[in-house]
Design a protein around this nucleic acid. Structure first.
Lengths: 159, 159
DNA sequence: GACACGCTGCGCAACTTGTCCACTGAGAGG
DNA sequence: CCTCTCAGTGGACAAGTTGCGCAGCGTGTC
């Protein structure tokens, strides 16, 4: 991650439909350089994909909620992974992490409506290893998920 | 969102470097159709972008934490947005939402290390309207952020 | 029955991609 | 001081793709 990488990412993030050739022109470097940098960023794992970004809202799931789940501790090794697998099978579950706090997990879910959210939560709670859960609903989004500013920060600080 | 749209998204999500022409071949439809569908999905807001997906980990920020912030209620209208603006200025803050619970906000932050997390949290807490905060650290990721299964669900159910 | 709409299949010019090459400058190591 | 390697440059080529327009066709609607 040097400055060129940073500007490259910035450029593609701003204007994704730009091609390699066009990018090389805008950045004032040779085309081969852009290609090499892009390959390296992908190889390093900094760029994990180029897939289309989908909006759950536009797909008809405007309600977002965060669930904190307490997992039974006695569960034999891998209890979290079992619950994780259960959650992964529910399409409305967009994200799941294990978090600090005895046996806690955290999940992001979406639903078609507040009423529909109940259905999703029920599906989540179906797993017997889940002891307790609490739900908070996201009302508004002040900062949508973004990594670009972080890339800037990484540029100026990291090798 | 009909079945074609679903398969289209599936295809591009699986194999993003595929072009419109190649996609039309694989889906067995005319090239113009793929282009039209893609345009419509973008116009509808279902596809919000094609930018590179960046990994905070690979950028040197392997620690993820979730902060719940309690915002002073007396703050004149827009207190949340003011805090939101403050948070938006911190690159390590990746996401911020207002949530249910009197005056609460929720933020996702990353840091270079557990020690570095302290610095980030301090930066967040600098804002005077933040009354209280609690932090949980993400230990492992059972399900990485994904929307694809949801797109499948939307296909089979929505118009 | 007329119409709008979405899909097909085709053609063309302009452009981009993947790939290779020879050359240059800078830093690392002997 | 010399030499090697690495990264970048600039150019070339064939093959493939994109953007665009057009005519035809089947279906569902008013």
């Amino acid at each position: 991650m040097d400055d060129l990488d940073g500007r490259l990412i910035e450029l593609f993030a701003t204007d994704p439909r730009v091609g390699v050739l066009e990018a090389s022109r805008r950045l004032g470097v040779a085309r081969g350089t852009v290609q090499a940098r892009l390959d390296k960023l992908a190889a390093t794992g900094v760029i994990t994909g180029w897939g289309p970004d989908l909006s759950p809202e536009a797909l008809g799931f405007p309600v977002t909620a965060f669930l904190t789940l307490e997992i039974r501790q006695e569960t034999s090794q891998g209890g979290h992974d079992l619950v994780g697998a259960h959650l992964a099978a529910i399409p409305e579950v967009l994200e799941v992490h294990t978090i600090t706090g005895a046996g806690d997990m955290w999940a992001r879910v979406v639903a078609r409506s507040n009423a529909d959210l109940q259905r999703v939560i029920d599906a989540v709670l179906e797993h017997p290893a889940i002891v307790r859960s609490s739900t908070v609903i996201a009302l508004a989004t002040q900062v949508p998920y973004r990594v670009r500013p972080l890339a800037r920060a990484a540029t100026t600080t990291t090798a």
